[in-house]
């Protein structure tokens, strides 16, 4: 597709969709959203870009390979599960560390393994789905 409007519009759309996908990921624990939805949105962003500017451009813009991203994501999710081993809890027990307080009521924010896991899910879905579609687009 060699439409200038599409190409130019796609850049803005991709940026917006990516920001939105991260937003969906981060708010997922309390409101509709989460890693699956965020990952699908992120993949969609790059698919839009690939349709507008071609898969080579999309891959260049992504910088890392989607398959690699998915693999790393699986690793991140696994690490999130292994963190609980440090405190002697069963595998994949959520770990919470409060910053600026000692419970969710007083703390300013928290660092937790659950979000790390959701980021892993995000990366796997993002990378996995994107690589499937880019591959099909390139090979067929």
């Amino acid at each position: 597709m060699n439409s200038i409007i599409v190409t130019a519009g796609a850049r803005i759309l991709v940026a917006l969709l990516l920001v939105f996908s991260v937003f969906m990921l981060l708010r997922g624990h309390n409101l509709p959203g989460g890693g699956f939805i965020g990952g699908l949105l992120g993949a969609t962003a790059f698919i839009v870009y690939a349709i507008a500017c071609g898969t080579a451009e999309a891959r260049k813009a992504l910088r890392v390979s989607p398959e690699g991203l998915a693999m790393v994501g699986l690793g991140v999710a696994l690490v999130a599960g292994l963190i609980s081993a440090l405190t002697g809890d069963p595998f994949f027990t959520g770990q919470w560390y409060w910053v600026g307080g000692d419970s969710y009521e007083t703390a300013a924010f928290s660092i937790n393994s659950v979000l790390v896991f959701d980021v892993g899910v995000y990366m796997v879905v993002f990378g996995g789905i994107l690589s499937l579609i880019l591959m099909l687009e390139e090979e067929l």
Binding site: G34, G35, L74
Partner: peptide
């Protein structure tokens, strides 16, 4: 589990191992 979206909490906290298998 400090999450208000129960569906997401199930996915990433209560039933994490399932989700891990699914991804």
């Amino acid at each position: 589990a400090f999450g208000r979206n129960i569906v997401n909490v199930i996915l990433v906290d209560f039933r994490t191992l399932d989700t891990f298998g699914e991804i």
